[in-house]
Design a protein around this nucleic acid. Structure first.
Length: 418
RNA sequence: CGGGGUGUAGCGCAGCUUGGUAGCGCGCCGCGUUCGGGACGCGGAGGUCGUGGGUUCAAAUCCCGCCACCCCGACCA
């Protein structure tokens, strides 16, 4: 992408109606645009990040047997009456609306009520199990108070997977796989070192649910962490009984703030029973399936990553999620510099490397400042000097030093050789 | 939903106390000079002052209602 053609711009001014660091920076850098409290548009650069995160999540879900589908946002009242979840006293964050003919609808906050009937239609035998359909889709939750930028939105993108198993053993086996897949996702996103498996309240069908908490003062949760064992206990279940269960002692735990970046839990037959989701087992007997639910907030992760790595110059994206890997800052518009920069841009683009090419008529300082604010992992400066020397100046976003490199060395440093 | 705060040009703000032709910075357009860490000069464009009502000869400014946004709290299968 040539920056001269990118329709979004960075701003020197910090937005006044945001105090959360993630929202301030993402807006300043032109990644997102605020529509209302807790509702944002994802602009070209921001959407790249969303898609990069989604793709990693998708790959890891597919790797454990997940099957992607897409369910609707519009929800029928009857479905939720079957599980008791239409009642505002049971689910207090519904957005509700109506068809012209008066039929009541809601905007989906979770999709057990959609998926159960779908599974009932197709799955009739133990031989078909287990299965784990998932989607990456926009969720609506009418939060009393949305806040902290992308951390708690009223409309946000979430990956939600639901597993269906015939036995507790089968369920547990998949649940464990999902747990491992989640940790892998956080590793790939670059936040693995500060993300911890956390025991939280389990609801009516299992003792615990498992959260994945990323350490950050911007978080809303308080957890008690054992760094050595890489596990934590959410404050909401921080009791002697739970400590004993996990063989943890209060003295070896530290109290920290964290962001919930994922939550998995067992649902038992809570949703399969009302919809009569049963299969025939080996003995020819009807068995109601056991379900699990595996949530992960894609846009919240984007906010978390922004919040976690940002420095005083702006965003700092891990390579895996960055909207581009390389920022080419072309200084000046002499024929030599243009030729060298255009050549590099074409070369990297053809090699499949994501590039933001700053071909704008701006002074060097402004370009460097933008490269930093946008948080692109690598910056390559091309100028009359480098053109004359036949070299390129490479600097990593988080490094103070730059290096003069020839083309082969540059390409090698950027992880491409072609 | 309770408490606190804020709405004035695309963005960030001043003006409001004490009513009288709406201003600054960034950004934008034109010309010129600049060009390795957010350049400078000159000239320009751009505003129903959140919204509805009230007081007044006159309202961004005073009064009342409403809406939106931010923060704290409560809430978050």
């Amino acid at each position: 992408m040539r920056l001269s053609r990118l329709f979004t711009k960075t701003s020197k001014n910090v937005p006044a109606d945001e105090t959360a660091k993630n929202a301030q920076l993402l807006i300043q850098a032109g990644f997102i645009h605020k529509e209302m409290a807790g509702v944002y548009s994802f602009l070209p650069l921001g959407l790249k990040v969303v898609n990069n995160i989604s793709q990693i999540v998708r790959e890891e879900m597919d790797a454990i047997g997940g099957q992607e589908l897409l369910m609707p946002a519009l929800q029928l009242k009857e479905r939720y009456e079957a599980t008791g979840r239409w009642d505002d006293k049971v689910v207090d964050n519904w957005f509700k609306t109506k068809l012209v003919n008066g039929t009541e609808l809601g905007l989906g906050f979770s999709h057990e009520e959609n998926l159960s009937p779908i599974v009932k239609q197709f799955i009739n035998s133990y031989k078909d199990l287990p299965i784990a359909p998932y989607q990456i889709q926009t969720k609506f939750r009418n939060e009393l108070r949305s806040k902290s930028g992308l951390m708690r939105g009223r409309e946000f993108i979430m990956k939600d997977m639901y597993s269906f198993a015939i036995s507790q053993e089968q369920h547990d086996e998949f649940y464990a796989k999902a747990q491992a897949a989640y940790l892998k996702i956080y590793d790939r996103l670059g936040i693995g070192d500060s993300t911890f498996l956390t025991f939280a309240s389990g609801g009516s069908f299992s003792k615990y649910s498992h959260e994945f908490q990323t350490l950050s003062e911007a978080g809303e949760d308080t957890i008690y962490l054992n760094r050595e064992r890489k596990i934590a206990i959410n404050k909401e279940v921080y009791t002697d009984e739970v400590l004993a269960d996990q063989n943890l002692k209060r003295e070896e735990l530290e109290e920290v703030r964290a962001i919930e970046v994922g939550n998995i839990f067992s649902l038992g037959t809570k949703f399969s029973k009302p919809f009569d989701v049963t299969v025939t087992d080996e003995a020819g007997k009807l068995v109601t399936l056991l379900m699990g639910c595996y949530g992960l907030g894609v846009t919240r992760l984007m906010g978390t990553i922004a919040e976690l790595f940002a420095d005083d110059k702006g965003l700092v994206w891990p390579e895996a999620v960055a909207p581009a890997k390389v920022y080419i800052a072309r200084l000046g518009d002499s024929p030599d510099a243009v030729k060298q920069a255009d050549g590099l841009y074409d070369h990297l683009t053809q090699a499949g490397v994501g590039v933001l090419y700053d071909d704008r008529d701006m002074r060097p300082g402004a370009k460097f400042a933008d490269a930093d604010l946008l948080g692109i992992p690598y910056r390559v400066v091309v100028s009359d000097k480098t053109a004359a020397a036949g070299s390129y100046e490479l600097k990593a976003r988080q490094s103070e030093e730059s290096h003069q490199l020839g083309l082969p060395e540059l390409l090698k440093s950027l992880g491409t050789t072609s």
